[in-house]
Design a protein around this nucleic acid. Structure first.
Lengths: 155, 155
DNA sequence: GCTCCTTGCCGAATTCAATTCGATGGCTGT
DNA sequence: ACAGCCATCGAATTGAATTCGGCAAGGAGC
C-alpha cells in the first residue's frame, strides 16, 4: 500500500465534504485530468482509505427528535459476553453509534428516539433488562455535530 | 413539506448505505423510472431530509490510530461562553464529533490522534488550558461503529 | 356523475459524465 | 546513458443524468 501524496489528500478532503462530487469536478479541483483522477479514487477505494459513501439524513425530519447518549457499565465477570452485548447494541434500530471504551464505562451508545416515552422504553427493554448490564446512565443530547477526519498532513 | 412515503424511505435507506449509487440503479431498486427517481431525490435534498453526502475514511490508514472521548465539564458561571467553547471544540482538526449534553458533562468530544503523545498535547493545549473548562475526563476508544438512522416507519 | 386541476409517473431525446486505452514524459536504478 | 516503470494525458466510446412532453390517477367543486 502506497503513501498518500498531496493530491490524494485533496481528493479525500473533497469527497469527505461532498461524496457526490462528479469525477470531472473533482479532477478540476485537484488539478488532474478526469481519467487520472478516477484512477486515484479507485485506488483509494480498493485500499480501504475510503471505506464508504454515505448520505447524512436529518433525524428531526424523520420524526426522530430526541437523541441520547447511554453509558453502559457491564458486570465484572462478563468478559466473554463483551462481544455479544456489543453486537446487540449495534443491532438496535435506534442506535446511531457505539463506542467501546476503556475506563469505568464499557460502552457508550448514541441513540435516536421519537420522544421521551420511546427513550424510556428503549432503555428498559434493550439496556437495563440485559443481564450483562450492571448500570446505565442516560444523557440527553442537545446538539450534535460531526466533521470529517483531518486529511492534511496525516503522519 | 410533504410526508415521506415508502419509496422515499427506500431511497433514503439505499443512499444511506451507498451515497454513490447511480440514479439508474437506485431507480431500479425502488421500482421507479430514473426520471421519477431523480425528482424524488432532488426533493429530499432540497427539503433537507438528505443533509449531506460524505465519504467515510479509515482513520488508521490516515495515520490516526488513536481515538478518544473527552468529557468536558465547564465552570458554573460561564453560561454565556457556552457557544464559543463549543465552536472552539468543533474547530479543532482532531475533532470528529461534538455532543452538547445535559447532565454533569457539558460536552463530549470525539477526537482522533496519531498517538498518545499527540493526545496528551491536545488535551493540555486545547482543553485543560481553556479558562471555561473546569475539568475533563479522557477515555480511550477501543472501537467505534456507526450506522445509519432508522428509516422505516419514522413516527 | 362529470369535469377541471393537480400530482406523480413514464419514456424518448439530449446533454453530459464516466470509463477505456494507447501514447507520452519523467524518474529510478543500473 | 539506457531501460523499465508509473502516473499522466486526451481522444474515443460507452453509459448515465437530465429535460421535457404526454398520460393516468385522485381529489375538489359543481
Amino acid at each position: 500500500m502506497s503513501t498518500l501524496d498531496r493530491i490524494d489528500r485533496e481528493i479525500l478532503a473533497a469527497l469527505q465534504n461532498n461524496a457526490r462530487l462528479s469525477n470531472k469536478e473533482l479532477a478540476a479541483q485537484v488539478g488532474l485530468a478526469p481519467s487520472s483522477c478516477l484512477t486515484r479514487v479507485r485506488r483509494l477505494e480498493t485500499e480501504g482509505v475510503i471505506s464508504a459513501y454515505r448520505a447524512d439524513l436529518d433525524a428531526r425530519k424523520l420524526g426522530l427528535g430526541l437523541q441520547a447518549l447511554i453509558a453502559v457499565q457491564l458486570r465484572l465477570h462478563v468478559g466473554e459476553a463483551f462481544g455479544s452485548i456489543g453486537d446487540h447494541l449495534r443491532s438496535l434500530p435506534e442506535t446511531v453509534a457505539v463506542y467501546c471504551l476503556g475506563g469505568t464505562t464499557d460502552f457508550l451508545v448514541h441513540v435516536v428516539c421519537r420522544d421521551t416515552e420511546h427513550l424510556r422504553i428503549l432503555t428498559i427493554q434493550s439496556f437495563t433488562s440485559r443481564p450483562e448490564v450492571s448500570r446505565i446512565e442516560t444523557s440527553l443530547v442537545f446538539s450534535f455535530s460531526r466533521s470529517g477526519l483531518p486529511v492534511e498532513r496525516g503522519g
